[in-house]
């Protein structure tokens, strides 16, 4: 079955009207994720965009049709590990899924996540990476790229956007021997669905999925452009799609198909958060993008 028919036939387990922004890719990723995993899922959504949009529910209503709890920002992985331990006694086939933002993964929740990887808890931890704390007003996070203007790294007479580089969380988890690590982009839906289906089969440890979700509100672009931006991120090798399983890296088809990468400038142009960047700053980003590609291709070749 092709991806279109598969997704058309699956039940949407998220409420039809949640208050995510126009063109929000985190919403699309969550819907497709739950479509693939099905009803036998327990969801944990720490504070962040999706919890704020109503997935965790308001008052006594719920935003999803599966059990959903809102942990604290720092402990989603450890809370989920407890939920998984309890479900293992009842039905080990229940998928225990965390859908955390990049702040809740790369910064605040990293300790709990890394401990869950160490314990080999069989949970599915999904990072919705929109490259800043978008829910609270675009503060920089560990995964914000170099040069991006955010409300805590503003551009002015002294500030030139974020000084440091993006934290590479999927690589970090792969080096920590998570059972399965994959990077996903909603712009490549067949690849996305295949990786979620593969993640659902894995029973021997932590599963980590890292999704780059373009955020029109925070990145400063038209809502209609978010799929195109995600595609440009993959084509320029700014975001690399790969899988890690059984001590082996495998570069996924959309990234393998990139023979002549797009200039990173193509991806950066049209985003308000990068509007101030001079050519020298873009060169710096190009250098890091090239380094990451070299590292990954060396790892995948071994």
């Amino acid at each position: 079955m092709n991806t279109v028919d598969y997704l058309a036939s699956r039940e949407d387990l998220v409420s039809p009207g949640i208050s995510a922004c126009q063109g929000c890719m985190a919403e699309l990723s969550l819907r497709v994720l739950l479509k693939c995993l099905g009803r036998k899922t327990v969801l944990v959504v720490p504070p962040g965009c999706m919890a704020g949009a109503g997935v965790g529910g308001w008052n006594k209503s719920m935003g999803v049709k599966v059990p959903c709890a809102m942990p604290q920002l720092g402990n989603s992985a450890s809370m989920l590990a407890g939920i998984k331990a309890a479900y293992d006694l009842v039905d080990p086939d229940v998928h225990c899924v965390a859908y955390a933002g990049d702040g809740g993964t790369a910064d605040i929740g990293l300790q709990a996540l890394s401990a869950a990887a160490e314990r080999k808890d069989n949970i599915i931890y999904v990072c919705n990476d929109n490259e800043a704390y978008m829910n609270t007003g675009f503060q920089k996070s560990g995964t914000t790229p170099h040069g991006a203007s955010t409300s805590t790294t503003p551009v002015g007479s002294l500030g030139r956007g974020k000084l440091n580089f993006k934290k590479d969380v999927p690589m970090m988890l792969a080096m920590q021997n998570a059972a399965y690590v994959a990077t996903l982009s909603p712009s490549y839906m067949a690849d996305f669905v295949a990786k979620v289906q593969r993640a659902a089969q894995i029973k021997d440890g932590l599963v980590y999925l890292h999704i780059l979700n373009p955020c029109p509100t925070g990145w400063g672009c038209q809502g209609s452009r978010s799929i195109a931006l995600g595609r440009a991120a993959v084509r320029s090798r700014y975001f690399l799609l790969y899988e890690y399983r059984d001590y082996r890296f495998e570069i996924s088809a959309p990234t393998r198909a990139v023979r002549e990468p797009l200039d990173v400038g193509e991806f950066i142009r049209g985003q308000k958060r990068f509007a101030h960047l001079a050519e020298a700053d873009i060169d710096e980003i190009r250098r890091v993008v090239q380094q990451r590609w070299d590292k990954l291709s060396r790892l995948a070749a071994e």
Binding site: T3, V4, R31, V32, K35, P186, M189
Partner: peptide, 9 residues
């Protein structure tokens, strides 16, 4: 369009 609609509508 079905693949990419964020609301799956």
């Amino acid at each position: 369009c079905l693949l990419y609609c964020p609301l799956c509508c």
